[in-house]
Amino acid sequence: MQKYVLIAVGGALGSIARYWVGSSIAGRMGIRFPYGTLIVNLTACVIIGFSMTYLGRRADISAAWRFLVPVGFIGAYSTFSTYEWETLSTMRAGAFGIAALYAAGSFVLGLAAVWGGSLLGEMMP
């Protein structure tokens, strides 16, 4: 039962963080390009890369952290479905260049962010 509570708490925190980060970025940079979702996705990639690597290498850390952070928090914080919807909406609006830039940028930068987070996890004692 404890793991479900941890997932729920992590999910609640991830949902709140997703809304706050996404809306803060969108409020500063506008909504023509979905900067808020892009930043949320990239930070989620760093966090999951770091947490899965770091927690996987540290047997002394409680498994509870695996339920709280990568499953709960990142599960709610990550916005891949929103990314797909915004790409489709941008294409439907006729902005094919922006849609392609967003889709490719999210993929390439997201992969780099996961790799960077994983490297950070490997560097930690």
Rank of each mutant, 00 (worst) to 15 (best):
Y54K: 03
A44H: 01
S51K: 05
F50I: 00
V71H: 01
S23I: 14
E84W: 11
L111P: 00
Y19L: 12
I25M: 08
V114S: 03
A64K: 11
A63H: 14
I47S: 03
V5I: 15
I74C: 13
G14R: 05
S81W: 07
F33I: 08
A59F: 15
I74N: 01
N41S: 10
F96Y: 15
M123D: 11
F73N: 00
Y77R: 05
F33H: 09
I98D: 15
L55A: 00
P34Q: 09
F67E: 06
W65H: 07
M29A: 10
A100C: 13
E84S: 12
A100K: 11
G36L: 08
R92E: 14
G56K: 03
Y19M: 10
R57K: 13
V21M: 13
A76F: 02
M91G: 07
G94R: 03
G116P: 05
L88K: 10
P70R: 00
G97R: 14
W85G: 09
R18G: 00
A8I: 03
V114C: 06
V46Q: 05
W85C: 09
L88C: 11
L68D: 01
S15A: 11
W65A: 09
S78P: 01
Y4M: 11
L13R: 01
W65D: 00
I98V: 15
G97K: 12
L13Y: 04
L111W: 15
N41E: 10
Y77P: 03
T82K: 07
A17S: 14
G110D: 02
G110F: 00
G94H: 07
M1Q: 13
F107Y: 14
L88T: 14
V69W: 02
V5G: 07
N41G: 09
G116D: 06
T90Y: 01
G97D: 14
G94N: 05
R28V: 12
S81I: 10
T53A: 01
R32E: 15
G36W: 06
G30I: 09
G72D: 00
E86K: 13
Y83W: 15
L68V: 06
A99R: 08
D60M: 06
L111E: 14
M124W: 01
V21Y: 08
S62L: 09
T79D: 02
G75V: 03
A113L: 06
L68I: 07
I48M: 06
M29N: 09
E122H: 12
M29I: 10
Y35S: 11
I25S: 05
W20D: 10
L68W: 02
V114Q: 02
G10N: 02
D60W: 10
S51Q: 04
G49V: 02
A95Q: 15
R66Y: 15
